[in-house]
Simulated scan of single mutants.
Amino acid sequence: MKTRMMHTVALALLALAPAPALADGPLRQSPAEALAAKAADRAEILAMAGNYKVRFDMQETTAWQSGYVPLDRKISGGHEVVRVIEDQPDHIVLQHLLVVDDHGKTMVIKHWRQDWDYQPSRVLVYAGQGKWVWEAVPEAMRAGRWSQTVYQVDDSPRYAGWGRFETQGGVRRWRSNWTWRPLARRDAVRHPVYDRYYAINRHQPTPTGWIHWQDNMKMALKDGKLVPIVQESVLNTYERFDRYDVKAADTYWARTRDYWAAVRAAWSRVADTKGGIAIPEKADTGTVISGRLLSIADAIAAGKTTEAAGVAEARTLIDRNTATIG
């Protein structure tokens, strides 16, 4: 009797427990379900646009090599404007712009860009040492999924991954596959023992904005083999906030958007015709032409040069400094 009662209680508790999350795999959706899911996904992506106060919280946590001492936690922040600059059914582009108060003077700094593509056949991934190559998305894993490609301040690539939007525990999120990334400036300028990240990215809406959470494994190339050095957790929190000079960001973008559209097109052409993008990089600036591409935009915004002249120089810089990937 006692055994039977315990069995009954156990079954009742099991019924109350949440079902385990299934491993990622090919999505099975009816046409109606796929259409509804895509609409919901697009709404989540577009909702990342807005005016924000941003908090960047970075912490190395677990050392994977004996003798390595993780860095102290670093927290910083700022104000960031995010604008939708392209919106097509299967392609959305969000541009980030930092707004900085420099001793009473407002400065706008073109920040990162994120491109979202529905059911992509390929993505441009980091391959180490200033090189990004095309990688096919497994055909069985394309349906219902989105790729996110992140670009650096000069619109050169940074990293790309693909994944699905899903709801777990009542929270909706997009999670990438494992992706390779070059070092962020915060690490690159220190000349650390590691030289790239292997990471999973998550984007999740919150009641007041959204978060970008990164699970980064910092890796080093030793004797021709990649080895893990330390784990890092990065949580970037975007809280809706507009009590800063938002207009400065919109003015900058209005004056330079056509220039940057031409720059994006130039990088895209190189990626398609040269088998990807190969360009030397510097720790403090990213690509070797990053500083110049940004200064051309500043000159256009200030009326010191024409858009036509700026675009012509940018195209020349990109063509001359990129190599064909064999």
Rank of each mutant, 00 (worst) to 15 (best):
M141R: 03
K131Q: 13
E135P: 04
K247W: 07
T149E: 07
L14T: 05
P228S: 06
S295T: 15
S121P: 10
A323S: 15
I109S: 12
A32G: 12
N236I: 14
N177G: 08
D90P: 08
P120S: 03
P89T: 09
K131Y: 01
K218P: 01
G224W: 05
R164V: 11
M141N: 10
N177S: 09
D258T: 07
G128H: 02
Q129D: 05
R175P: 04
P192A: 13
L226S: 02
K131F: 00
K110P: 05
V93D: 04
L46D: 11
A188I: 03
G326L: 09
S295L: 12
W267D: 01
E307T: 13
D187Y: 11
Q29C: 06
V81C: 10
S66K: 09
V153P: 03
D41W: 01
R196E: 01
Q95C: 02
P182A: 07
L293W: 12
A40V: 09
K2M: 07
I85E: 13
A308H: 01
L221M: 07
L35Q: 15
T324M: 06
A301Y: 09
S233M: 11
P280L: 01
A15D: 06
S76H: 06
A323C: 06
D41Y: 03
N201S: 14
V230E: 03
A184L: 14
W132P: 06
E307M: 11
G275I: 01
V69C: 08
D242Q: 12
A36Q: 14
A314W: 07
A43M: 02
K225T: 08
D101C: 11
E307K: 11
I277H: 00
A301C: 05
M58I: 13
Y118R: 15
V108C: 02
F241Y: 15
I200C: 04
T62I: 13
H212W: 14
R255S: 05
N201Y: 07
A309Q: 08
I325E: 00
Q148G: 04
M217P: 06
V100A: 11
H91N: 14
M141P: 00
R145F: 00
W260S: 00
